[in-house]
Computed example of a mutant assay.
Amino acid sequence: MKLGVFMVLLNNMGFEEALDYVAEKGVKMVELGSGGNPGNVHCKPDELLADEGKLRAFKQAIDSRGLTISALSCHGNPLHPQKAIAKESHEDFIKSVQLAQKLDVAVVNTFSGCPGDSDDAKYPNWPVAPWPNDFQDLMKWQWEEKVIPYWTENGKFAADHNVKVGLELHGGFSVHTPGTLLRLREAAGEVIGANLDPSHMWWQGIDPVQAIKILGKNNAIHHFHAKDTLVDTDNVNMHGVTDMQDYTKMQDRAWQFRTVGFGHDNKTWADIISTLRLVGYDYVVSIEHEDGLMSVNEGFTKAVHNLKQVLIEEELGEMWWV
Rank of each mutant, 00 (worst) to 15 (best):
H222N: 07
H222W: 01
H223R: 07
H225N: 07
A226M: 13
K227F: 04
D228F: 04
D228R: 06
D228H: 10
L230S: 11
L230Y: 08
V231D: 00
V231W: 02
N235P: 08
V236D: 06
V236P: 08
H239F: 13
M244D: 10
Q245H: 12
D246C: 06
Y247T: 10
Y247C: 07
K249V: 14
K249Q: 14
K249H: 08
K249S: 14
K249W: 09
Q251E: 14
D252V: 14
D252C: 09
D252F: 10
R253T: 09
A254Y: 03
A254S: 09
W255S: 11
W255T: 05
W255D: 02
F257G: 09
R258K: 15
T259N: 01
T259D: 03
V260E: 03
G261R: 03
G261I: 04
F262H: 11
F262Q: 04
G263H: 04
G263R: 01
H264Q: 05
N266D: 06
N266Q: 11
T268N: 10
T268I: 13
W269Q: 11
A270Y: 02
D271I: 05
I272H: 00
S274P: 05
S274F: 00
T275I: 07
L276K: 03
L278D: 15
V279W: 00
G280E: 05
G280A: 09
Y281D: 02
Y281R: 00
D282V: 10
D282N: 12
Y283D: 05
V285H: 00
V285E: 01
S286T: 03
S286H: 00
S286F: 02
H289S: 11
E290I: 11
E290N: 07
G292H: 12
L293R: 08
L293I: 14
M294E: 14
S295T: 15
